[in-house]
């Protein structure tokens, strides 16, 4: 899923400062699962904003609303009738959702309440960690199912570097060395000999380096 973390209140308040009627718009996909921008977090943020504004003696009228997804037109359409009654939209979706809402309502100021952080997993309740950087050219079959692009701090294709110590990354001891994991997994699979296979210099053109990307499925297009 896409994992995010909420922006500091001060930053959010500065964005919406000129407005008195706003929609706090949640998303029921990834950001709900990582507890940052779902229906409940919409309620919490709205309550905070109202309390804060009341203290300052300023009015605020908030519509709390959550969409099934903010990355599909049909769901974003559900608020069209409401939008005219408000001054701004504060989206709690990932960066994709925020932008898609903005594209749908070009006349409305749309603000992000969340920092989109990474594509990751729920490692434990309350702990999300990164797994994928969407490089567009998966090599997990070569590296024991563990991604060197996202799990190695330097994205080394032929790691580990000399900074790997006690299975931890040189960047800090909280980070597990991705290459240590790869080697352990290859060992478990009885494929440690694969470690010596040279992985050639990567074609990054499929990654963000190649510019904004798109996927077209002609068979599905109408």
């Amino acid at each position: 899923m896409i994992v995010g973390s909420r922006k500091p209140m001060e930053e959010i308040e500065a964005m919406i400062d000129p407005f008195e009627r706003i929609i706090v718009l949640g998303c029921r996909e990834c950001v709900t699962v990582c507890s940052v921008g779902g229906e409940k977090e919409v309620g919490i943020l709205a309550a905070e904003l109202r309390l804060s504004r009341k203290q300052k003696g300023r009015a605020i009228d908030i519509l709390e609303f959550s969409l099934e997804r903010q990355c599909d037109h049909e769901y974003i359409e559900q608020i069209r009738t409401q939008v005219a009654n408000y001054d701004a939209i504060l989206s709690m979706a990932c960066g994709a959702g925020v932008q898609f809402v903005a594209e749908s309502y070009p006349e409305m100021p749309v603000f992000p309440a969340v920092n989109t952080t990474f594509i990751g997993v729920t490692e434990e309740q309350g702990l999300w960690t990164e797994r994928c950087q969407a490089c567009g050219n998966c090599i997990l079959h070569l590296t024991g199912g563990i991604c060197p692009v996202s799990r190695c701090s330097k994205s080394l294709m032929n790691g580990p570097c000399g900074g790997s110590s006690d299975g931890k990354c040189e960047v800090n001891k909280e980070i597990v060395c991705g290459w240590q994991l790869i080697i352990e997994r290859l060992k478990q699979l009885g494929q440690l000999d694969k470690y010596e296979e040279y992985i050639p210099i990567k074609d990054w053109s499929s990654s963000r380096a190649g510019g904004p990307r798109k996927v077209v499925r002609e068979d599905l297009r109408i």
């Binding site: 008195e20 009627r21 009341k54 203290q55 003696g57 300023r58 009015a59």
Partner: peptide
Amino acid sequence: SPIKTVQTQKSGDKP
């Protein structure tokens, strides 16, 4: 409560 001690302004007024 801080929200009781202030008079909320009418919509449109800026503090």
